[in-house]
Nucleic acid binder design. Structure first.
Lengths: 137, 137
DNA sequence: AGACTAATTGCGATGAATTCGCAGTTGCAC
DNA sequence: GTGCAACTGCGAATTCATCGCAATTAGTCT
């Protein structure tokens, strides 16, 4: 859970809403703002969606959460301390699988060597077909 | 430019709007629906945005164009015959670089071997920092 | 060439996701 | 406790994309 002073240390005020948003992101693993709001409403029914958006943004600015693009449009948030990993998103069934970031190590290295590009592999989804959806019809 | 019968062959009607949308996508390389509409309006000012959306969808269905997610939310379209390539999007300056798809061959192979995941590398952007934006301040 | 039919277009309405302005509230430094 | 700036709630405003429907039009058949 969110230790009171980890927020204070970042120069943020400690509000129930903010603590709950951070806790929700940590609990949920991956979540859209909508899902975070739902989770928070379990204990704090009155919370406003824009408060959730604003807190996600604030928490991202101080580095406690990050967002990733997994699908069409919407961002999903996850706690920053969570080990970053790859998101394998299936274009057919929509499932999201994880893979350790090391799986991309060589790829990242070669982009760095050949193109001078420093890749953040976890920020965007890796798109394709999951094992199940490749099965013959 | 769009040959009349390449559209007809796909079972599509040949309308000025449709030809122009296809031509615009080919001209622009990468473009959002909004940008395609702007381009088309140069020669066909009255075109409606929803017509552009519908044509992009139709053209994608018959395989003449494809879309990719390069940034936040919006899709960008490109002609299908263009060699598919990786999109290296810089998180700082927003520039979009290209890299041949072979640069990811090993990565794709290892995801297939280890996770049974068949990756479409070009569908989502590869996010990171371009060479310029890595320079010391 | 003229007529028919279904595909396509324009347009406005609609819907979802996100942001914004502002007034009221609240954490926290003193 | 007091005061101020940060934060919240709320509704309005934006943005991006989709939809329904009536009018138009491409392509087919005569």
């Amino acid at each position: 859970m969110a230790e009171p002073h980890e927020l204070r240390e970042k120069g943020l005020r400690l509000t129930p809403q903010r603590e709950l948003v951070l806790a929700a992101v940590r609990d949920l693993g991956h979540a859209t703002p909508e899902e975070v709001a739902e989770k928070v409403r379990l204990t704090h029914p009155g919370i406003n969606l824009s408060t959730v958006y604003r807190n996600l943004e604030t928490l991202e600015n101080v580095g406690l959460v990050q967002h990733t693009h997994l699908g069409h449009g919407g961002a999903t948030y996850h706690a920053a301390e969570e080990l970053t990993h790859l998101h394998l998103v299936c274009s057919k069934c929509g499932s999201v699988g994880d893979a350790p970031i090391e799986a991309a190590a060589n790829f990242v290295q070669s982009l760095a060597d050949d193109y001078g590009f420093k890749t953040d592999v976890s920020h965007f989804a890796i798109y394709g077909l999951c094992e199940n959806c490749q099965l013959p019809l």
